[in-house]
């Protein structure tokens, strides 16, 4: 197959940015409604990065995060991650469970907290994907999201398995978000990573009326 990285133009990058904008915009609204809080979102960043650089985008391979992973199935398969810094995940769970004493040390044993976080991932990824599906008119549906609280490297590398058979680079559509007021602190930002499978790029571009070689 052709090296798909070489066929990506600035027009394509703009389209991917728009996809991130629409998807994460809807997800942020869903999050805001769920928590009854104002959520800020950054302008999406579309980057062609090495795998190591991708880990660095989420705070480095050893940074501990709550990660929700799902596979996108349908006409344009891919992977999606929703990564939350532990502090932010704790705050969200406290809000969802209405328990301000909830402590992140209880992660593994607290079934309720885990299912709350899983549900959060469900809602966010669902709204991201359905807006994406509306925009592209492609049929896309999420696998059941899976949750892991662990190192960024261990979580994110799993979503790179498909991609890594084709390339040592990833095209990442990254949207950072945060509760309002905490914006200045880079490290407490959450991230949406959308990683279309290599063959999905041309499907997405064609669905939006842009040929592969524009």
């Amino acid at each position: 197959m052709m090296n798909y990285m070489n066929t990506i133009s600035s027009v394509h990058l703009d389209i991917l940015k728009e996809i991130g904008n629409i998807g994460a915009g809807h997800a942020a609204t869903a999050l805001s409604t769920l928590l009854d809080k104002k959520i800020d979102m950054t302008v999406p960043d579309v980057k062609i990065v090495t795998f190591d650089e991708m880990m660095d985008m989420a705070g480095g391979p050893e940074n501990i995060v709550a990660g929700v992973f799902l596979r996108i199935e349908g006409e344009a398969p891919g992977s999606m991650f929703f990564l939350l810094p532990i502090e932010q995940a704790t705050a969200f769970i406290q809000d969802m469970l209405d328990d301000q004493h909830f402590d992140l040390q209880e992660w593994q044993t607290n079934e309720l907290a885990l299912s709350a976080l899983q549900e959060l991932g469900n809602i966010l990824s669902g709204s991201y994907l359905s807006s994406l599906s509306d925009f592209t008119k492609l049929s896309l549906y999420p696998s059941v999201p899976a949750l892991s609280i662990d190192m960024v490297g261990a979580i994110v590398s799993f979503g790179l398995v498909e991609l890594s058979q084709v390339s040592d680079y990833a095209i990442v559509i990254d949207t950072a978000f945060n509760e309002e007021q905490k914006m200045e602190k880079q490290e407490v930002r959450g991230h949406f990573f959308l990683l279309p499978d290599p063959d999905s790029f041309s499907i997405i571009f064609q669905a939006l009326g842009v040929s592969d070689h524009d």
Partner: peptide, 9 residues
């Protein structure tokens, strides 16, 4: 020598 964040790797 070190490597960080091994998951399925």
């Amino acid at each position: 020598i070190r490597t960080s964040g091994l998951g399925s790797c």
